[in-house]
Design a protein around this nucleic acid. Sequence first.
DNA 1: AGTGCGGCCTGTCCGC
DNA 2: TGCGGACAGGCCGCAC
Length: 271
Amino acid sequence: MPELPEVETTCRGIEPHIIGKTFQQVVVRQPQLRWPVTPGIAQALKGERVTAVGRRAKYLLLQSTGGTAIVHLGMSGSLRILTKLSPAGPHDHVDFLLSGSLALRYTDPRRFGSILWTNDDPLQHPLLETLGPEPLANSFSGDYLWKRARGRKAPVKNFIMDGKMVVGVGNIYASEALFRAGIHPGRQARRISLARYQSLVSHIKAVLGEAITQGGTTLRDFVDSDGQPGYFSQSLQVYGRAGEPCNRCSAAIKSRVIGQRNTFFCTRCQT
DNA sequence: AGTGCGGCCTGTCCGC
DNA sequence: TGCGGACAGGCCGCAC
């Protein structure tokens, strides 16, 4: 599933191919995604030029002279460059046909993703404007997180997965960062010291940074590739490892549902 | 205001 | 072997 590193890698992968190109046509075969694809997006983009490709949280921003397409990959989506238009499969919901005989194809079997269009500043869009800081930004610090945690009784795992606090920390990376920081995922957010938040934040940055580097390796080629995302799986310390020995202390890794999501941790290393 | 949960959707896996 | 059901998962929006 595309986590922030995959989205970042997608952003970097498609940008050099589509920048400066013109939308010739936008073909929407299946508008029913998480939200309906914005009606009129095809007419709005036709003939317009791509000026920038960016990312905010897990949203890709395809900016053009005709407004911005806000693309979310959900959990099964992908966006790739085609140099030859192959027949659309059942989950190829949208094609952005570009000048230079290129196409940008959106595929999403589970349709948890979305494609929206705005003519305003995309950062002012209702879905984006209330989001917390980017995890890799300097403004995301232990100090910041500790302050936001005052009075918070929710488990720290829920807290760091809350997009209002910080974006891009998905279920996998929450477990991994908490393990590295030695913090139990079920601990109340308010019951964690500033020093431990500083550690947690540096581990969140490190985990995401490493994953981006690895994603960059496995996802380097977005052109005509099968679009299969690369995984950080070789580096996972706890995620999906219930019952297996902790790499640090050899105790069995536990799993428990925290924040409606399966959560993995070591009861000996994480307090 | 903070917190928890339902729901969207389909491929994969498990048990019978 | 085939089939049904549980599960996963981001994240909005609602209910308390």
